[in-house]
């Protein structure tokens, strides 16, 4: 099942193309990370998908509802945490959740228990009695998450949910997102790569309004990995490195010195094949292996790689 379907969605502001023919499908119950540098078109996409901005062309469906003017069913099935959640500061946190619940027509008995449940989940039980005006940034973010979940949304949009939080606040929000995956699809726009690595099942990378790639984090690593194996031996590994030159599924074997230690580094054309066969070659060489590692690039390296190749086009 698909929670979000985007078909050729574009948004132009005069001559500026904020989003250029975006096509995307997000399956149910996953955390989808929408990754891109500042100004890439992430917030524009979230605004288009939540109906707060009108597309120049194209269509989108969220939770089986067409995105457009006055589709209350869409709002009833979704939740939104904007990049900077804003509240009525004269209200208490509890009062705000009651107000939001009433907007969703949640019956009063059910609303009371739901508000209590959410305040407990975001750890604002005590603070819920105080005015929002006195809340810290982290508390506001947590209240923002609670209000976005009050209707048990099928799709939850989170725009930069951790960007303004301290490390502890970030960890809490990310843990919350992981728990939410069981009941909702989460569309999370962010530029924090470590967050994506930690919680996202799928990732879409966008730059200058164009979607560059969509994939699972693992598949991305697999696709963009340099497949570099690193090995250290007690003996001199130069003859072994030279012999690897003859192996068709390996490339660029070389000895590099790092911290005074010689390291044999070799890249693989076919990573899976190399994983299986390289240990056999090492064994046959008769050398004494002290370290063997497949170095995988971080998402940050992949992201920079993709951005650079896009800029070089």
């Amino acid at each position: 099942m698909t929670s979000i379907k985007i078909d050729n969605l574009s948004k132009h502001y005069g001559k500026i193309i904020a989003l250029d023919k975006l096509n995307l499908e997000v399956p149910d119950n996953i955390v989808f990370g929408f990754l891109g540098p500042n100004g890439a078109g992430k917030t524009t996409t979230v605004k288009l998908l939540t109906g707060f901005s009108r597309p120049t062309s194209g269509d989108a469906w969220v939770a089986d509802e067409k995105v457009g003017d006055g589709n209350y069913l869409l709002n009833a099935k979704t939740g939104l945490l904007p990049d900077v959640p804003a509240f009525y500061n004269w209200m208490t946190g509890r009062e705000f959740l009651y107000f939001v619940g009433e907007l969703y027509d949640i019956p009063s008995g059910e609303l009371k228990s739901r508000v209590g449940e959410l305040l407990e989940m975001v750890e604002l039980i005590e603070a819920g009695r105080r005015r929002i005006g006195g809340y810290s940034r982290g508390m506001r973010q947590r209240l923002g998450i609670a209000q976005a979940l009050i209707n048990r949304p099928r799709v939850l949009f989170m725009d930069e949910p951790t960007s303004a939080l301290d490390p502890i606040g970030r960890r809490e929000v990310l843990e919350l997102i992981l728990r939410l995956r069981e009941s909702a699809t989460i569309f999370m726009s962010t530029h924090i790569l470590s967050d994506v690595e930690r919680v996202c099942d799928m990732v879409g990378i966008i730059n200058q309004g164009k979607l560059l790639t969509v994939s699972s984090v693992e598949a991305l690593r697999h696709k963009y990995t340099h497949s570099a194996f690193e090995m250290e031996f007690i003996e001199d590994a130069r003859p072994f490195a030279e012999s690897l030159n003859q192996i068709p599924w390996l490339t660029e074997p070389k000895i590099v010195i790092e911290g005074g230690t010689p390291i044999l580094r070799v890249s693989a054309v076919d990573i899976d094949y190399a994983r299986r066969e390289l240990p056999r070659l090492i064994s046959e060489s008769g050398l004494t292996l002290t370290r063997y590692e497949l170095s995988q690039p971080s998402l940050e390296e992949i992201f920079i790689n993709i951005m650079e190749s896009e800029n070089n086009r």
Binding site: T50, F52, G70, Y72, L73, N75, A76, T78, G79, L80, P82, V84, P85, A86, F87, Y88, V100, L103, Y104, D105, Q147
Partner: peptide
């Protein structure tokens, strides 16, 4: 300006 309009109107309410 403050963004409370977005918070409120992301719920099932008419303009």
């Amino acid at each position: 300006r403050h963004g409370t309009a977005i918070m409120t109107m992301s719920k099932p309410v008419s303009r």
